[in-house]
Computed example of a mutant assay.
Amino acid sequence: MARPRITDAVGRAALEQALGDEPASRTDTATAVRYLLELLVERAPGNTVEVRVPPFGAVQCIEGPRHTRGTPPNVIEMDAPTWLALASGRIDWTTAMAGGTVHASGQRADLTGLVPLLLPR
């Protein structure tokens, strides 16, 4: 059974905590990461690229050839702080890639035009 979608109110509250000046709880960080991954899937549904933010979540997104077994050919992986900054608009895709905290492999492993998911405040 699929996990229920994180509501905007809960997701935004967790995101506010995760991006705040004080260190966020693991629960708030996990909720914020998963909420933004859900928004990514809504913006770019599909099964071509797997976006991983260990240990909090992974999703498949972007239309194109479907991956079904083994290691996906198009993978983007990053830590939670990088994902939160990228998805919230605090950094852009080029900066994140140049910083070395994003690992992308495969021809379609690119989030240009899909992030930020939210406008920075």
Rank of each mutant, 00 (worst) to 15 (best):
T27Q: 11
R5K: 14
V53R: 06
P120W: 11
P55Y: 00
G100N: 02
Y35H: 02
G20K: 05
A9I: 09
V49D: 07
G70W: 06
V102Y: 01
M1A: 12
G57L: 02
S105N: 05
P23H: 08
V41P: 00
A13N: 00
L19G: 00
W93E: 15
T112G: 04
A109F: 13
A18E: 03
L119V: 05
P23Y: 12
A32M: 08
A80Q: 04
A104C: 00
P55Q: 08
V53G: 06
M78G: 05
W93Q: 11
P72W: 14
G57S: 09
Q17E: 11
T95P: 13
P4T: 09
G57K: 11
H67F: 15
A96S: 15
L37V: 11
F56V: 00
E63K: 05
P72G: 13
D110P: 01
I76D: 07
G57I: 04
G20N: 01
V115T: 09
N74Q: 09
E16D: 03
A96P: 11
T48L: 15
R121H: 04
L117P: 05
I91A: 03
G57W: 04
D28S: 14
R108Y: 05
I76P: 08
V49I: 13
I76S: 00
E22S: 11
A96V: 13
E22K: 01
P65N: 14
E63H: 06
V10A: 13
R90S: 06
M97A: 12
E38Y: 04
T101W: 14
R52W: 04
W83A: 05
P55N: 11
A24K: 07
D8G: 04
D28Q: 11
I76F: 07
L117Y: 10
R43W: 10
D110F: 07
T48H: 15
E38G: 14
A80H: 09
L119W: 12
L40D: 06
M78K: 10
A32L: 05
W83T: 02
L84P: 09
I6Q: 08
M97P: 01
D28H: 08
V75R: 14
A87V: 12
D28R: 03
T95V: 15
L114G: 06
G46I: 04
T68C: 09
T71R: 15
L111Q: 03
P73V: 12
G100S: 15
R12L: 15
R69V: 15
T95C: 12
I62D: 01
T82I: 04
S25R: 13
L36T: 10
L15Q: 01
M78Y: 11
L36C: 05
V49Y: 07
